[in-house]
């Protein structure tokens, strides 16, 4: 398969289970390295990226998952700050940026709640805030609405849409036909590792 995604695009990857959608995310994160073929993000050839350069590369990417992946013993603000902390940003930066981002995702006032005190949608907002806090050029979302009810899903999609408007490229893997149909963005359908459809303003089909 051969795909080119332009800067600032919002792309859905759809297809049946086992088609290879999530593998795309893993390849882009360099969690897996392909046997052959080439993946480039910006100027970086991910397939030939040195192992020790991987962390620096990942900082230019944000990632959101179906299961949120928050630290249970940290508050919303601390979870977001953690992403800054571990890449060596000073605390003063975290103090300034974290409330901003939480405000952006609509969690103003809930900074000090722990994940178990937040609803699923709110937890996913924290995850989005964490993914976005470094202002990545590329945001990967692996079924971000998979665990959420339809209304909450739409709220999360609005949030992603707003992030997309800031110029961030968004690549989202999903099963959710409603969302794909509502958003009317580029849709790439995969089956058995092959692209069967690539539509600019597509529906789930």
């Amino acid at each position: 398969m051969n795909v080119f995604i332009d800067k600032g695009e919002f792309v859905f990857f759809i297809g049946p289970t086992g088609a290879g959608k999530s593998t795309i995310i893993k390849l882009l994160l360099r969690e897996e390295v392909p046997d052959k073929g080439k993946i480039s993000v910006g100027d970086i050839d991910v397939t030939r990226l040195r192992r020790w350069k991987t962390p620096a590369y990942r900082r230019s990417i944000g990632c959101v998952f179906q299961d949120f992946r928050l630290l249970p013993n940290r508050t919303a603000a601390e979870n977001v700050a953690f992403a800054l902390e571990v890449i060596g940003k000073p605390k003063s930066v975290a103090r300034r940026v974290v409330p901003e981002v939480l405000e952006l995702v609509g969690l103003g006032g809930k900074e000090h709640r722990y994940p178990h005190e937040l609803s699923g949608g709110e937890q996913q907002r924290v995850a989005v805030a964490r993914a976005f806090v470094n202002r990545p050029l590329l945001l990967l979302a692996d079924e971000p609405t998979g665990n959420l009810d339809p209304d909450t899903s739409i709220e999360i999609m609005r949030l992603l849409d707003r992030i997309s408007r800031t110029g961030t490229t968004i690549l989202m893997v999903t099963h959710d036909s409603n969302i794909v149909n509502q958003m009317r963005r580029r849709v790439i359908e995969i089956e058995n590792g092959q692209i069967v459809r690539d539509q600019a303003r597509g529906v789930y089909g």
Binding site: L29, W52, P55, R69, V86
Partner: peptide, 16 residues
């Protein structure tokens, strides 16, 4: 493992 996975996800350096 949870912390480690998140650290790697957000690009924490290996030494860290």
């Amino acid at each position: 493992r949870r912390e480690v996975a998140i650290m790697k996800l957000v690009g924490a350096p290996n030494w860290f």
